[in-house]
Design a protein around this nucleic acid. Structure first.
Lengths: 246, 246
DNA sequence: ACGGGCGAGTTGTCCGGACAAAAGCGGCGC
DNA sequence: GCGCCGCTTTTGTCCGGACAACTCGCCCGT
């Protein structure tokens, strides 16, 4: 048995798929052009329709071709779509805290949205939202950030069960069977508000960074808005985004 | 023709797929369990093997089942994997500038990496990298940010052709046929360095925000590192991440 | 000139068959 | 007890056929 026999032979449909991929890549069938029909491929290549169809199905799966009953197989891309999306594995990557920090809540209750808050939350001025205020504490008891969260009234029942560890939005997703579709995040820097400076044991008007985050549901509605003040000194907000498959 | 006839009947394979999906979701076949064999399904459902195979192929495609020749079809997930990845449509979303800003380069040339730069770039101290310094200018001529870029020596030939508009990493990708796989971004706040404060027409030690970004290639190598100082006043770094399909 | 209907061509669904390749299981030997 | 071998079972590849559903172009009627 010669070394040549060790190499497993690719299935016929895979070889036909590759031939068609090459033909498309070389521009023999440009974008918008029709590939040969199934019948033509069967006749030309001397294979069954079943085999041709499997090859074509894979081209569809790869995003190179679109097939329409009665019309034929049309080339829609010269190359497999390459991902341009860069992403993070989960929202938790935005949150800045591992499971070793705790949220100390010092106030929770329904409160009317002010003008600024209504704009942030995309709610109505005066509308009653669940307002939660607290301090994020590290493992050593050191305060890391102040936090100020507004939760949509639809999910206000979560109030008594807010998690000390882990993300509030996850708890809401689980409890109410909803799903965050989008997160809008804004980062700015400026002097710490007086209350935040005190809570974080920093001088009044020391520089801080404000992380504002709005979680949006699939239907476009705001789930919650959070504002977190961090002391700027020694704080770096890091993020790692990876290219996603196309 | 009654209204009932208007509803197109789902193909047989789709109905079988759905039955199997329901059975998996209800826990009738738990994760790790074997589904009935093709032969069993054909006999039970009184359909051809072709139809059963198509239904099973779709379960594989959906990520619920794995099939192994000789062994059978094993359930690997109870529910279709739900995306946890949140992403941005492209890196351009990180860059802060539309096409209406320009990069005014005031220095470019090979320079050795210092200690701090070597750490940022994940290169060697003393290694010669292409160093580019400049000012990001708005449409009205107002300075928006200072920028300081280190480009890997492998791509130093881009030096004379750095784009005034648009992203440098795109120009490098195109010219050298490489691909950014990952971006690491770090945001911090602190007093503007003297040179940056002057260039941005701000008081010395005014608060600024530093955006550091490292672009990593598919092989893990650094393409470039950029550091941009923005005045903190009036500057908000915003980002919108959307949940990606699973 | 425009719209509708019809026919030819093309893909989609579904049937049946055959052989190959891989995995699993049981029995036997060391 | 472990490993090897042979047989059975299960999925993978590929063939062929038939009918349904859809698309597109052409022709005819208004």
């Amino acid at each position: 048995m010669s070394p040549r026999d060790v190499t497993p032979r690719a299935p016929l449909y895979a070889r036909i798929e590759q031939r068609l991929r090459d033909a498309i890549a070389e521009g023999r069938y440009g974008v918008g052009a029709l590939l040969p029909t199934e019948a033509e491929l069967c006749a030309t290549l001397k294979v069954s329709r079943h085999t041709v169809r499997e090859a074509l199905r894979r081209l569809v799966e790869a995003g190179l071709v679109e097939r329409r009953q009665g019309a034929g197989s049309i080339v829609i891309a010269r190359e497999p779509p390459r991902g341009e999306v860069f992403g993070i594995p989960s929202i938790d990557g935005l949150m800045r805290y591992g499971d070793d920090t705790r949220l100390l809540i010092n106030h929770r209750g329904m409160a009317p949205l002010g003008r600024e808050e209504a704009a942030l939350a995309q709610g109505e001025v005066g509308e009653m939202w669940l307002s939660v205020q607290g301090l994020r504490i590290g493992q050593d008891g050191r305060p890391l950030a102040t936090t100020d969260i507004l939760i949509h009234p639809r999910f206000a029942a979560i109030g008594p069960d807010l998690p000390e560890r882990g993300a509030i939005h996850h708890a809401i997703e689980r409890r109410f069977g909803v799903e965050v579709a989008e997160v809008v995040q804004e980062i700015s820097a400026g002097p710490l508000p007086a209350a935040a400076a005190d809570a974080l044991r920093r001088k009044r008007r020391a520089t801080g960074m404000l992380l504002m985050r709005r979680h949006v549901l699939t239907d476009g509605q705001t789930l919650l808005v959070s504002r977190n003040w961090h002391p700027a000194e020694g704080f770096t907000y890091a993020m790692r985004l990876r290219r996603q498959e196309g």
